[in-house]
Amino acid sequence: MFKKRYFFILFIFSSFFLIQDADALVISPARFNVTIEPGASQNLIIKIKNDEAQKVDLNLKVLGAKQDEYGRPLFFSGIEKAEEWVKPKTNKITVGASQEKNAEFLIEIPKQIIPGSHYLGLAVEQIQTENSNQVGLSGRLVALLTLRITGNITEDANFVKWTGRNFTWNKEWPFVLELKNQGNIEVALTGETAIKNWRGKEIFRQPVFLGNSLLAGAIRFNSGKVKIGDKIKWPGLYQTEMRIIYGQSEKRISKVFYIWYFPKWSAAAFFVTMFIILRRMIREIRRKRKFGN
């Protein structure tokens, strides 16, 4: 009994080690959120783990970061004044096979800096040797750094676009959403679409995934479909409202576009009715021509 239990415990422990990845470059932590005052300084340490079978030579760099319209990070040199405020203590570092090393970065915020967030990438990049007639590949791992300069913070996100079709007979109503963060700090987003009748009475609502935090100055694009299923049966004019809650202050914004909905049965009924009316009119005209008034 004891042996069985011992074996079981050993099995559980060994399974933790089996999950561990091998043969790679790893950084930790992968993200820093630093709130700092103008004129202050702070050290950051990134731990680099080399699981390769040979040593790696690495460059340490600080890059400016932006978000694309889907919320994915892009890194550039020379786009962020904050790139000047963060420096690696050394530009190059060598990590031996199966070893760990710390890379240090020093943040020094100048005085007289206005409050708000700045976005950077702390890059650990393999130094590549160029080979002729070949495509050389090297890896760069980037830890995200959000630098929040203390002071007055403004959360201000607005609609750039909220549109869709004006007319449809489909049960899926496509929409296009664009949001812009005009504030000076990143904001978390939650959203939902609400479908209302022409009087403004809500029929149903549907959550919309808006992705990760929207950085200051960034635009978020989202295209999707409202699936009405069997919730709307009758033709008519409907309101499609986008409701968004953003930021730590949980501000709410909303926008509406109108859509004429004609289910397929109503479109068919319309065409049949039109056909009957047209046929009657033609008959009436023919009858009048034949027999006069």
Binding site: D21, D23, A24, L25, V26, I27, P29, L44, V135, G139
Partner: peptide, 27 residues
């Protein structure tokens, strides 16, 4: 971040802790 001494290491903070990549070929 990391606080270390000879006998312990604390990995502090609420940030995601690890990011890794392996490229199968260098050329």
């Amino acid at each position: 971040g990391f606080t270390t001494s000879t006998s312990y290491e604390t990995r502090g903070g609420y940030q995601p802790m690890e990011l890794g990549m392996k490229v199968s070929a260098s050329s």
